[in-house]
């Protein structure tokens, strides 16, 4: 028999990490007070909190702006990545022709190309969306392609004997089979999209958290900048969880196979 736990497992899973997190903040706060760390070197949690509160609704509007860039860019990446992943997996000619180019594009460091894109496409939303899409479509495409390609041979045999056309086979067998793979791609993709959005706002923006970080740092408002970074981290976690939640809500059958791919 196992020893009785004070909390039910669900509560345990929430309280334990929360406790660690609070302890981390407390130690940080205590350390900044005890060693008298200057605020421009490392702001304490309370400094960061004050920095954030000082921004008030401004922080909120910039967060929404960044969220908008992330979501639209991520949606574009899905719209390009998933069909392209299917195409690359299903058609050898497409795969052989297009794949090297895609790998090459992905190999370009996004931070290096971002300023060039600004010169080409200007300083508006389009450029930011291109940067976000470029950063996150690759994991989505690769995950989709591998799901499509790893469809078990027996399932394909089944659909062949059942007389399914190539298209029906893709939509009734390969694509559903790839769902858990696609979602692991989306989980990676959405976190990378946050990075892409910040990079985009670093090089070209008058709004957004990335812009706020650069402008606050320029004015040595380190607590404000750090508050933005914290919001970015929270945003990233929230988006990751949103993808997870969508997966569970709509494709619950595939969730238990999650840890495999």
């Amino acid at each position: 028999m196992s020893s009785p736990t004070p909390f039910p497992p669900v509560l345990r899973r929430i309280l334990l990490p929360l406790g660690t997190f609070c302890a981390f903040l407390l130690i940080w706060q205590w350390a900044s007070n005890a060693f008298d760390v200057p605020v421009y070197l490392l702001p304490s949690p309370i400094d960061i909190w004050i920095g954030g509160v000082k921004l008030g609704p401004v922080l909120w509007t910039h967060t929404l702006e960044t969220l908008r860039t992330i979501l639209i860019g991520f949606a574009c990446a899905c719209a390009v990545g998933i069909p392209l992943g299917v195409l690359v997996a299903v058609n050898r000619t497409v795969s052989e022709a297009v794949y090297p180019l895609i790998v090459f594009l992905n190999a370009i460091p996004i931070i290096a190309i971002a300023p060039i894109l600004v010169v080409i496409f200007g300083t508006d939303m389009t450029t930011r969306l291109i940067i976000v899409t470029l950063t996150c479509f690759f994991p989505i495409m690769v995950a989709t392609a591998s799901g499509i390609m790893e469809t078990p041979a027996e399932m394909l045999d089944l659909s062949k004997v059942a007389g399914a056309s190539r298209l029906t086979e893709i939509f009734s067998v390969r694509l559903p089979y790839a769902i858990p793979f696609i979602f692991s791609g989306l989980r990676i993709g959405v976190t990378v999209a946050v990075i892409g959005a910040v990079v985009a706002e670093f090089v070209n923006a008058d709004k957004g958290l990335g812009y706020l970080v650069t402008s606050a740092t320029a004015q040595f408002a380190i607590p404000t900048a750090t508050a933005c970074v914290v919001v970015l981290a929270l945003l990233s976690v929230a988006l990751y969880e949103a993808v997870n939640w969508t997966h569970k809500l709509f494709f619950n059958w595939s969730v238990r196979h999650d840890d495999k791919p």
Binding site: E154, M155, D157, V161, A162, G163, S254
Partner: peptide
């Protein structure tokens, strides 16, 4: 066409999990 003519049962059940 398809299973209306020749149907098959494999060694594995090969049910579609979704």
């Amino acid at each position: 066409p398809g299973f209306a003519e020749v149907a098959i049962v494999f060694q594995k059940p090969t049910l579609l999990p979704w």
